[in-house]
Design a protein around this nucleic acid. Structure first.
Lengths: 186, 186
DNA sequence: ATGATAAAAGACAGACCTGTCTATCTATAA
DNA sequence: TTATAGATAGACAGGTCTGTCTTTTATCAT
């Protein structure tokens, strides 16, 4: 377990997340993390490899965040709402620059690009998880509700990139509550 | 009114939209549109200038599309739903690669970047228009509904870039109907 | 027909990109 | 102590980027 590798991943990730994958060059990463270029290429085969490694790490952190939101609750409805409350908090955080997966898919629209693939796998799992929670909740139109919530989540993430910290997603927790209430006929 | 300018704008725009602003270079644009580099730089001061011109043209086309959806209807509720029906149709079109404004904001996150500014102005107007329709409709929580619909619209656009033509926004018209029905207490 | 305008083709500059390489230094382990 | 591994600094290659410039050709109005 090399700490150098983690340092590179951390610095590169922060730069990618804030400025975009194409906007950040290798030279910028090695300058910012104060390592040699050969060191970077010893740990990562290529820039794409580094991007994929970052996205996979973000995927792990995303699910830690997601599970961290749901586990305190014991029923699907509260778990679902907890996710969107956590999302509302996240999109109000100054260090949140959107969603690494959406940015990756936007910059690498080719679905066969390795970065796009990792991003897409994450989103497909999110869809599946939301759908499972909606079904477990016994919502009238579970699939439709899950898709609505999914679109709203990504809409929230992209709103952060457009508007920064003061974005139209600062009420997304309450929005989810309304949609869920409507779907279960409360 | 130069047709050369329009041709450049058309070719460059299609490339930007499909592959991204940073991914497409000037050389690619002049090769694809079969013009000389000097010709491009006679019509556009810089690449950023070309990007801004494209985004402004897209803004015009966006509002033509939006108004084209609303004008056949005479009440705010039907107008609102018509927009999302049109959106559903749009995100199922193979030549739709997402939203030029979201892509621009994603690739140029700096809010002072000229491309980001044009994109943001468009989105702010969309928010305002949706909000006006929700208020005119007499929705219970008009601002909240407008924001929900806004987030869902951008979620739909970004889903196109992530998933292509088979995306989770292919029911967004019905989703909007449900949300509106819920908000007006039908 | 002639002068002016604009376009085409492409060389060019200077910067930046990814990725490889060499040479040197340092730390650790046998 | 000495060998090995990994780090550093940075030159370098080959390509691409934006933007400028020159030269030649075509178009158009007078």
């Amino acid at each position: 377990m090399s700490s150098v590798r983690e340092k590179i991943l951390d610095v590169a990730g922060n730069l990618f997340f804030q400025y975009g994958y194409r906007a950040i060059g290798i030279d910028m990463i090695i300058a910012e993390s104060q390592i040699a270029k050969a060191t970077l290429y010893r740990h990562f085969k290529s820039k794409d490899d580094l991007i994929v490694a970052y996205l996979e790490e973000m995927n792990r952190q995303f699910w830690a965040w997601f599970d961290g939101a749901t586990t305190p609750h014991d029923n699907p409805k509260d778990q679902l709402i907890a996710v969107f409350d956590a999302l509302q908090k996240l999109v109000s955080t100054p260090t949140c620059y959107g969603c690494p997966f959406l940015i990756a898919a936007s910059e690498f629209p080719d679905p066969t690009h390795p970065g796009h693939e990792v991003a897409r796998r994450n989103k497909e799992l999110v869809q599946a998880r939301l759908s499972a929670l909606c079904h477990a909740m016994g919502a009238k139109n579970a699939d439709a509700l899950a898709n609505q919530l999914y679109l709203m989540m990504d809409g929230a993430f992209i709103a952060v990139r457009m508007y920064g910290v003061n974005n139209p997603a600062n009420g997304v927790g309450e929005f989810a509550r309304q949609m869920v209430a409507c779907a279960i006929g409360a």
